[in-house]
Design a binder for these strands. Structure first.
Lengths: 209, 209, 209, 209
DNA sequence: AATGAATGAGGCTTCATTCAT
DNA sequence: TATGAATGAAGCCTCATTCAT
């Protein structure tokens, strides 16, 4: 019984998720979601009270997994180079699953800057990550593997190089005449491109130090 | 009478532009536009037929100037380094004027990928620009001033590094605790950062060759 | 099992009664009733078919006791003065238990005048009561203890003087600044006031005649 | 132009008023109001923003006239007897126009006691009226024209005797078998009945004193 | 007997757009 | 040219009721 319930609730969530972040239909109507899920529209309110709450839930659950992975990566003991490398993979993977997620995030933050805060790690945690990164960046600069750069610009570079091609997918596709296959191939090449752009030479292991 | 007319039509356009791209209120209602402009709502339809047409007109006019400048830059005889340098300036300037424009473009393209085409230079023109760029990039690679890279990734890198910080302004602000002044300062630093990230060494003049 | 059933059915009825006529929440939702009773909403339909039927049942049961008492009083052999005196007591007592009942009755009758009939004694019985009262009123008039008045106005006077202060409780409270205690005290004074208003002099016993 | 507008706005208001307070359909839907008025439902929102605001406006306007008259009467220099006499007339007149108004007021006050305050004269004004009345009542008691009674009970008596027959119209009709004509006749008799019930002897002029 | 799930009807409101002047 | 009035489509939400165990 509980299973059946959970099934339907999940069905609605997954349908909404698909519409919102996979098909990019961010304004999908409750009716559309219900139709797509093959349930009565009122059921959406039965389970989630309102469209907004459904959206929020879907968003947070969709973000959750990725956020955790990223935190984990940057908190680890790996070299900066490896961290970045893994970060890029995560980002690209996520985008292949939810092609419209990053786009939405960026748009939404512009509309409701206050909500940005809810989506970011808490102050304390962020500060800790920052210190770790800062130190690693200084090391890389000292070792000549990257050009002198502030942590802010380094991180914005990283996010830019990873994120923008995802966010601007249609633009990229149109510009270079990529079909879905071509675009995906292009995306997969990004990992090395980003690394090469950010590092003059790789650093696979701490031991090199 | 014609003057009065033009005045009102322009007033509406400018008001809409301000709401859409300066204040970021992309979903501004016809009523809101009318109120802000101090005119009757029906006038919007009188001059522009529909909200969509008004929007489109405003968008194209807003983009127009910048697009032309950029085309001009890349068609010129300058070094790649200088072109990129000037391109960055244009981009940042535009963003300071219309902080929500790039964000909108990226979002909209995702919703209506077909419209992307209207916003890009026609095939023929683009092809010509591409050849010019390709050649210049090969030269820079040959001279060792940039790492080997395809034109696609080079351009996407460029657009990423320029565009993302503009699109994701609230994210950047929140992440690094920038107020408006701090963010603007950060933006102005981007020019050199982008250049340093993309070029191992500058090339100010063709003569060096 | 039957006991358990009866328990639940009664629980629902009592809860509804409390919500409807003690808390004055006449529009209480099936969900609210269910929540308050701590049972599943569907049970209400299981036991009572529909919200309307539940309401009706609760109403009739709530009215039942009082109606019987009043019929009994007026059918008795007492003097008119004593009957009225006892009637007032009953009315005020009922109101202290169900402060919103009279208010609802009056409102509902206005909406569905047809339903009024169900709530009143049957024709035959009423006619009998009427004859008794008519005779007693004529006697009181003849004896000079009340001013000449038709039975209709006499009865409407009685019901008005008793009922209105109950129905319009919030108005009275607000008008004279009564809190709950003050209002109750005021109500208790009503008995004598009503009697004095309707009778020039009391008549405690038939023997006086 | 302004006339046409006013016409429609008034049409809606009057239609709503008729439905609410003449036909007693207090829960009339915006759709029903629109249909009855022969206009588009959205027009109701165009003129009144929301159903609630329409209702409030209609209520206040409907009450307005009567309230003013009553205030005027009690503030005048007339004898208490005459004031009461005129008060009754006003009340009965109002009820013939809006048979469901008093009923609604009483019901609504029970639901939202806080709103009662908005509908009553302000503290200050009420206090003044109270002093005037208090004095006049004392005079009447002293002169033996009314039995000793507190101002609170006197006023509640008055309002009860006037109001209840209006509020409980269907009950009265059903109880005594009155049709519309019979009920109206009954109402018109109330004036003298109320006066006789409240005063042992009339007092038409101050001069008598 | 009891329940969670599901449904359909109906209500309010907003909005872009059109009409009549 | 300009405007207030009017419209129809569409969206969200609530509720009583029924269904399937």
């Amino acid at each position: 019984m509980a299973e059946k319930t959970q099934q339907t609730e999940d069905l609605i969530k997954e349908t909404a998720m698909r519409l919102f972040f996979q098909k990019g239909h961010i304004n999908a109507t409750t009716q559309e979601i219900a139709d797509e899920a093959g349930v009565n529209r009122a059921l959406i309110h039965y389970y989630f009270r309102s469209r907004d709450l459904l959206f929020e839930k879907v968003l947070h659950e969709t973000l959750g997994a990725t956020r955790e992975k990223i935190d984990y990566i940057f908190s680890s003991q790996d070299t900066l180079y490896n961290k970045i490398s893994r970060f890029i993979d995560i980002f690209i993977d996520q985008n292949i699953d939810y092609p419209y997620l990053e786009n939405f995030l960026v748009t939404e933050m512009v509309k409701n800057p206050d909500k940005v805060k809810e989506l970011h790690p808490v102050e304390e945690k962020r500060e800790k990550l920052r210190r770790i990164l800062e130190e690693q960046i200084q090391e890389e600069i000292a070792s000549g593997r990257i050009e002198p750069i502030s942590i802010e610009h380094f991180m914005v570079n990283l996010m830019s190089l990873c994120n923008y091609p995802l966010i601007a997918k249609p633009m990229v596709q149109n510009f270079f005449g990529y079909d879905e296959v071509g675009y995906k191939k292009f995306l997969l090449e990004r990992r090395n491109v980003v690394l090469q752009t950010m590092f003059k030479q790789p650093n696979f292991s701490e031991n090199i130090k």
